[in-house]
Amino acid sequence: MSVLHIVNRSPCESRSLELCLARAAAGDTVLLIENAVYAAMRDSIAARQIETALGRIAVCVLEPDLAARGFAAAAPLEGIARIDYAGFVELSVAHRAALSWC
């Protein structure tokens, strides 16, 4: 059964995203929220890690957190899905367990 990984730290501040990606199983979902949304930007410090993981793992970013930080109009990395809070709730329903890498 799959796991929803929730990451909330900026990739510039913390290795949480990198370590989460290394420990996630195929079929898991990684959701970037709060300061972790900076990782979703093209050419971010985490862009390569995310691109390598995509295909094996689904990656989503929380839209209201992008907007709050001035990135509503910015295009995230290709392959990252933008979701709202309703999408966050749906992801937590669809996965057996949620893990906050805070």
Binding site: V3, R23, A24, A97, L99, W101
Partner: peptide, 17 residues
């Protein structure tokens, strides 16, 4: 090993950090 962690996580009902 790091690549064994996914297996442990996948067998849990609740994960608290």
């Amino acid at each position: 090993q790091r690549d064994q962690i996914a297996g442990l996580l996948g067998s849990q009902d609740v994960i608290l950090t």
